[in-house]
């Protein structure tokens, strides 16, 4: 009985982490879909979201939904600017040049924001906007934080799926990720669609940043690196470019991480995630939902 309850508890905790990974992974997968680029700076957008929320909560007394709204607008703007300034000039460059640029943008954001007069390189306690409450459901417990994470993630996902599958903008995004040239011939505005993809992805990462900081209330300019890489692995696991794949991948990675920490040791957590990556790349590089592609 105790094992079952422990297991269920770990599942709830895994879902909490996995939900955040899913939100970040969506941005990776969408950008990869339209640009074939691993946007290394995406993890830093997530970090930016956490810091913006931190300033909003600690400096201004505003309701939590406004914190979410303002943070999303700011991270979306950051995503938009990064694409326009750093990636757009390289639209026709070799893919590796674009990738190196993305690494450069990521490092720049981290080290620029870590300067003394900005966010500094220290860990900062994130003020929780409400008291933590634990609800005991006999077999396992759930906190109000976890409930909020699940609820916000669910609402974001529903909105995203509506955007992608029910609007013409979503249709344009899908067309561009299917074949950019053909999409352009069909009169789709490629630049605007790419911008929109970055905006939506960055907004989701902003939400992820807030949720993550509420759950693990220590923030730092380098906090985006590992969740960023893990979320990218989640996107690869689900099948890069596939929206629902990113969600499932995020949940699987979050669960694995919590289970490894709970049953083995937290020091092996990151190692196991990378072993998952190697296995996916070797056995099915196209991911769980991906189709096989023939070469030549």
């Amino acid at each position: 009985m105790e094992t079952i309850s422990y297991l269920l508890q770990q599942c709830v905790n895994g879902l909490q982490l996995g939900a955040v990974y899913a939100l970040i992974a969506l941005g990776y997968t969408m950008v990869y879909g339209v640009l074939r680029l691993i946007n290394f700076a995406h993890g830093d957008i997530f970090m930016l979201g956490a810091f913006i929320a931190y300033y909003l909560i600690s400096k201004f007394d505003i309701p939590i939904y406004l914190v979410f709204a303002i943070t999303m607008v700011c991270t979306a703007a950051a995503g938009y600017i990064i694409e326009k300034v750093a990636y757009k000039p390289l639209r026709n460059a070799p893919r590796i040049s674009l990738l190196i640029t993305a690494v450069g943008v990521s490092l720049f954001l981290e080290y620029f924001l870590s300067l003394k007069f900005l966010f500094t390189a220290n860990y900062i306690g994130f003020p929780r906007p409400f008291e933590v409450q634990v609800y005991d459901l006999s077999l396992f417990t759930v906190t109000n934080i976890q409930l909020i994470i699940f609820a916000v993630t669910a609402v974001s996902l529903v909105l995203l799926f509506l955007l992608i599958y029910k609007t013409k903008y979503g249709k344009a995004m899908r067309a561009v990720s299917y074949d950019q040239e053909v999409a352009a011939l069909m009169g789709i505005n490629i630049d605007a669609t790419i911008s929109l993809t970055f905006i939506v992805g960055a907004a989701l990462a902003g939400v992820g940043g807030i949720l993550y900081s509420i759950a693990y209330p220590q923030i730092n300019v380098f906090m985006g690196i590992m969740p960023g890489i893990k979320s990218f692995i989640a996107a690869v696991l689900g099948g890069i470019g596939i929206i629902h794949g990113a969600v499932l991948g995020g949940l699987v990675i979050g669960m694995s991480e919590v289970f490894v920490s709970g049953f083995l040791s937290s020091t092996f957590r990151d190692g196991v995630i990378f072993i998952i990556l190697f296995l996916v790349l070797l056995l099915k590089p196209s991911g769980i939902f991906g189709k096989r592609i023939e070469k030549v």
Binding site: I96, L99, I229, I233
Partner: peptide, 8 residues
């Protein structure tokens, strides 16, 4: 290849 090799 390329970016997948980079991430690996």
């Amino acid at each position: 290849r390329d970016d997948f090799l980079a991430i690996a």
